[in-house]
Design a protein around this nucleic acid. Structure first.
Length: 607
DNA sequence: GTAGGGTTAG
């Protein structure tokens, strides 16, 4: 029946019932009201009608309310429904598990009111309504979203009490919940290990959990166990495995995943293709990512954003910009993430004017309020271009407080462009705000090095020691014959270490002859110049490159992944190495890619 | 009548 027809029918029936007809008529009226409410397609329509129905003295029906909330899944609708469901004159005899589940699901799906899912869950228990097997996945999802381990444990206990912890859906959601709560990964693993049997969802939940915490090597290990257990992975499992490859920079493993998907006939969902694009781009083969992107028949904003961000990381800013324009031409409205990719493309390629234009179009044309990350991109862009003063002014005019990432960007730029006094003062305030953040000290120390204030520099080292601060160890990974090797500075754990150090020595001699000068002022330790050079030579990047030179045939490209930003000394040394040893060297650092070839780097020394 | 795991930035 059409909405209007029902409406006419209801008004007539209701009028008759009000005119004093019997109880049968009233029930018929109520029935019609339900149909009418169910036919509503907006919250406004729904609330207006509902108010009218209540005014006519008809019974409030919580079920209809919750059904509407479930269909619309808007927070307002869920709030509206629960306010009437729990109003004092509501007929609580109509409450059942389905009704509560619907409300809990409604709240669990919202981004801002997940805690209300618990209020409804507690109300459910208070009214003496028993939860059923559908209740826990909803409640646990809300726990996962809130990330509260203690809450999660309480709900876990409750599920055990009512005997639903044996249900495979409940257990899998429980693993997912523990993975999402800070400090819960151990509980997740214990539960996972103790499960009597696993399906692909259990494995995916565990793998995804490790990936979320960036414990990617663990994720890969669990995936290998999954294969030994002979559980067939599906496209969702493979998305997580690909994320792990992306994080590790493991191109070979990523390629293997692609062929595995092909061989096993796993469905290439849009999400899987997006994950493949991201993996290829971030593992160094952005052309392959582009090719895959072009072949996709259905693209989402994530596909576009992944490939735009990928090009940005490789310093191919103008291509990223044209893809952004193409995306708009295809009728896709950019979101705030797409703008981050675009702005970082402009930043990494020195497209300052373009970047400024896009930044203002965000608000003017697309009605997106810039977030701190967008401001961060702008500051980064100005700093890379050497416009330190303009960057300072920009920060002062920003409507939000700059975060420490932005301030650190400013300090680096101050150091690079000789604004040492300014850099020192920003750096000092950073240290007083975040006294345990190592990089704040490193920045200040580098500024003092540039000012030749050696005593002050030494003092910083002492302060750090006194505070017992741990340095985040820089590490470099390299993939060789399906194995991933990791190096830290001064690493001697590798069986080839003697040859590696000899190779590093040799590399040093060769590149010095070609004009390389070690930048010893980067070294934080208070040691003499010769030892500083030695310290630079032990950097993990250089060890990994030496390892690659030793173990790969001449001419092979070398791909390495560094967990932090590449240091300026290694950057300069790698340029020389690429020329002398005739190798293309692709370095992925924390922020972007550097393609070294013939003594030059694709970042054009913007970094 | 209601259920579980996934992709983009910084």
């Amino acid at each position: 029946m059409q909405f209007q027809t029902i409406k006419t029918h209801v008004v007539r029936t209701v009028t008759e019932s009000i005119a004093g007809a019997g109880a049968g008529n009233k029930r018929a009226a109520e029935q019609s009201c339900l149909s009418l409410l169910e036919a509503c397609d907006s919250l406004t329509k729904f609330t207006q009608l509902h108010a009218r129905i209540l005014k006519l003295g008809l019974r409030n029906n919580p079920l209809v309310l919750t059904k509407f909330a479930a269909v619309s899944s808007e927070l307002d609708a869920v709030d509206y429904a629960s306010s009437f469901v729990f109003c004092p004159d509501a007929d609580s005899r109509l409450y059942d598990a389905f009704l509560f589940n619907t409300l809990i699901r409604g709240y669990a799906q919202t981004s801002s009111s997940k805690e209300k899912a618990f209020l409804v869950y507690s109300a459910m228990l208070r009214y003496g309504v028993l939860p059923n097997k559908f209740t826990y996945p909803f409640v646990l999802k809300a726990c996962a979203g809130l990330g509260s381990l203690s809450l999660g444990k309480t709900v876990h206990g409750s599920a055990v009490k009512f005997g639903f912890d044996d249900d495979v859906h409940v257990r899998n959601t429980m693993i997912h919940m523990y993975c999402c709560c800070g400090g819960g990964i151990g509980d997740a693993r214990t539960m996972f290990d103790e499960m009597p049997k696993w399906d692909s969802v259990s494995w995916s939940a565990m793998i995804g959990g490790y990936v979320r915490l960036r414990l990617s090597a663990d994720a890969v290990e669990v995936f290998r166990k999954m294969q030994i257990a002979r559980v067939r992975p599906d496209e969702i499992t493979m998305v997580s495995v690909l994320s792990a490859c992306t994080d590790l920079g493991a191109l070979e493993l990523g390629k293997w995943v692609e062929s595995y998907v092909e061989k096993e006939g796993i469905q290439r969902s849009v999400e899987l293709c997006n994950a493949l694009i991201d993996m290829f781009a971030k593992c160094g083969d952005v052309d392959k990512a582009l090719k895959l992107f072009r072949k996709m028949s259905e693209k989402t904003i994530v596909s576009w954003t992944s490939v735009i961000g990928g090009l940005a990381m490789h310093g191919r800013g103008s291509e990223a910009v044209s893809l952004f324009e193409e995306m708009i031409g295809n009728g896709i409205t950019p979101d705030n993430v797409a703008f981050i990719g675009l702005l970082s493309a402009c930043s990494h390629s020195g497209l300052v004017d373009k970047g400024k234009g896009y930044f203002s179009s965000m608000t003017k044309e697309y009605d997106i309020v810039p977030k701190i990350e967008h401001y961060g991109c702008m500051v980064d862009m100005l700093c890379r271009a050497g416009l330190v003063k303009e960057a300072m002014e920009f920060v002062q005019k920003m409507p939000i407080e700059p975060n420490s990432i932005i301030l650190r960007t400013l300090v680096s730029a101050c150091r690079a462009h000789g604004e040492l006094k300014l850099g020192e003062s920003i750096s000092r305030s950073l240290i007083s705000n975040e006294p345990m953040h190592e990089s704040n000290y490193v920045l200040l120390s580098n500024i003092y090095a540039k000012m030749s204030h050696w005593e002050k520099k030494t003092k910083i080292r002492e302060t750090m020691d006194k505070k017992g601060m741990k340095k985040i160890p820089g590490s470099t990974m390299i993939e060789l014959d399906n194995e991933i090797y990791e190096f830290v500075a001064g690493d001697k754990s590798h069986e080839q270490y003697k040859e590696i150090y000899e190779m590093v020595e040799e590399m040093g001699r060769e590149i010095k002859r070609a004009g390389y000068v070690p930048s010893t002022s980067e070294v934080l330790l208070d040691i003499d110049e010769e030892d500083k050079e030695d310290a630079l030579n032990r950097h993990s990047e250089k060890l990994a490159i030496a390892f690659a030179l030793l173990n790969t045939p001449p001419g092979t490209h070398i791909r390495i992944v560094k967990n932090l930003r590449v240091c300026s000394d290694c950057h300069s040394a790698t340029k020389f190495i690429s020329k002398i040893y005739r190798r293309e060297i692709v370095v992925r650092d924390r922020n972007r890619f550097h393609h070294f070839k013939d003594g030059l780097c694709s970042c054009k020394d913007f970094w």
